[in-house]
Design a protein around this nucleic acid. Structure first.
Lengths: 192, 192
DNA sequence: GACATTTGTGGCATCGAATGCCACTTTTAG
DNA sequence: CTAAAAGTGGCATTCGATGCCACAAATGTC
């Protein structure tokens, strides 16, 4: 049982994230240095970079394993289902799982406010897209190009939904927007 | 006539790009430092950063004004045309304008090889997308959300085409791929 | 053609992110 | 209880990027 170690690690990480979140909200992401964060969190800079590969991961760390999990859910869809519907269904449930909407909105705004954060966000999103694309391509009757197209379009749709939602200050119905986006591109003969 | 100044500036810039291109091809982008480049080009580091805001722009500098021009072409489409067809037509001609395919392929590969290049590439692509989206949203009968969706999907489609083309070592017919991609998502009632 | 103004250049110092290295402490497992 | 494994902090260093300043070149004017 490797209990204590794991637990303290998680706790420390969560605390740093929280401390940093507050600093970012006050001064902005780029204006907050890693030195500021580690000083406020009472830890050394060297240790900070053991918890977070890059500064941006303080904000984006949670995204890391989403790709694998979504890919698994895609792979688990019924065999006869077309890929577009599968993507719609799976990604819809992920949108549904967002619990703290205030925090999600705050994070979206923060990401939009900093070029480096946006860059790293896109990078992670891209890795996620590739993982999902592989799962989609594994479905029968789909060539890699079409699989890539469907996945990329789905990802683009979610980006648009996030932007529209942020523009509405979180008042818009995210799920309705997702449905509208997927309906708009519903390919007549896609995914088969 | 502010001739000489402008011309030498262009010439210097072009030369740096060429020198750097060779270094990147030999050692890779991340493994080549700015010091390496300026030494090979015979210029100071300080001046380098007057020509290029960031190191990545040595590779991606040409992308800068594409957004405005594409947006202008979108705005100039016939009034009755639906937005998806307009995007297809305009972006198709841009794909057609790629003259040096070898170099385009080499650059694509370079971008894919370096995380920081990919990041900066995405960033610029995102700005371009926003410019185009504004032009699309200005078309009659389109709400901003739909305009954003169509633009983002078109951008995603072009990304897929570029990836597929790179996978085929430049042998695939890029224009045919573009047409396939746009046909796949041809929204029955979109853009009107 | 001499002159002041504008524009570009190089060198230097500095900042911030990130990494390698090493000595030291704590946890875990036998 | 002890040896191995894992985590921490401090230090030096690398690299990209920016501010500052003195100096050189080009431009436009008289």
């Amino acid at each position: 049982m490797t209990g204590l170690r794991e637990r303290t690690k998680r706790a420390v990480r969560a605390e740093v994230v929280e401390v940093a979140r507050r600093l970012f909200a006050e001064r902005g992401f780029d204006e907050t240095t890693v030195d500021d964060i580690v000083q406020a969190a009472g830890m050394s800079k060297r240790s900070f970079f053991r918890y977070f590969a890059v500064k941006e991961d303080v904000v984006l760390g949670e995204i890391d394993f989403m790709g694998e999990r979504i890919a698994a859910e895609i792979a688990a869809r019924p065999a006869g289902e077309d890929a577009w519907t599968g993507l719609h269904t799976v990604l819809r449930t992920w949108e549904q799982r967002i619990d703290d909407e205030r925090q999600a909105l705050e994070r979206l705004r923060l990401i939009e406010s900093s070029p480096s954060l946006r860059a790293r966000y896109h990078q992670k999103r891209d890795e996620t897209r590739e993982q999902i694309a592989r799962a989609v391509a594994a479905r029968p009757g789909l060539d890699p190009f079409t699989a890539d197209l469907l996945t990329a379009a789905a990802g683009a749709a979610l980006d648009c939904v996030a932007r529209a939602w942020a523009r509405s200050d979180g008042r818009a119905d995210r799920l309705a927007l997702v449905d509208r986006a997927f309906a708009l591109f519903a390919p007549t003969r896609a995914g088969r």
